[in-house]
């Protein structure tokens, strides 16, 4: 079955090339300020350089999904003799920490690849002159069968969680009410 194509956007990170200038954070916060570029604040940036200058560790992390609860992952990684929790390099905006939350409101932040900047690479990449961040775009064929199957699985998972939470009768009542409204 012939599938449609979708554009995949990607930022590749080369940790070895990072020079710790944090221009990525500055540019991101400027771009997402309202009005655009009117203020700078790395705490609002959707990319953060997690760094330990004294141990030569610099890891740019982009904000991914919002999660309303902490995950159960509690693995400990040892890199060059120093221990890191699984959280250390996670991009999720989650209740366990302040990272990727608006400093004032606490609302979650998520990288949007600077989408309203049509035809341009994201700002963090633009100002990363050393190539630690590299933007890539490619087209991926979407297999319709797989897509349909994925949709069905997502639907069933959603319904199952609603059934578990509210019970069949309440779910049905609401479904009927909302269907009538059109």
């Amino acid at each position: 079955m012939k599938g449609e194509k979708k554009k995949v956007k990607l930022i590749k990170v080369n940790l070895d090339k990072c020079i710790a200038c944090r221009a990525c954070e500055l540019a991101c916060s400027a771009f997402h300020a309202k009005p655009k570029y009117s203020s700078i604040n790395p705490a609002r940036s959707r990319i953060r350089l997690v760094m330990d200058v004294l141990n030569d560790e610099y890891v740019p992390i982009r904000a991914t999904e919002y999660t309303k609860s902490e995950c159960v992952g509690r693995q400990i990684f040892t890199i060059n003799g120093k221990e890191y929790s699984e959280c250390s390099f996670c991009g999720a905006s989650c209740p366990s920490r302040d990272l990727f939350r608006e400093p004032d409101s606490g609302l979650p932040l998520k990288c949007d690849m600077c989408e309203d900047e049509l035809g341009h690479e994201p700002k963090c990449v633009k100002v990363c002159t050393v190539g630690a961040l590299v933007y890539e775009e490619y087209e991926e064929e979407v297999n319709e069968e797989v897509k349909e199957k994925e949709k069905q699985i997502a639907l069933e998972m959603g319904l199952k969680s609603l059934l578990d939470k509210y019970g069949a009768q309440r779910l049905l009542d609401n479904f009927v009410r909302m269907s009538r409204k059109g």
Partner: peptide
């Protein structure tokens, strides 16, 4: 530790001056 905003007076103009400067300085 600081997490506050710094405002600039003429945002678009300033960014327009600065963005090309990253590459020109780097190169």
């Amino acid at each position: 530790r600081g997490t506050k905003d710094i405002n600039v007076a003429h945002p678009i103009e300033l960014w327009g001056l600065c963005e090309p400067k990253y590459k020109s300085i780097a190169d």
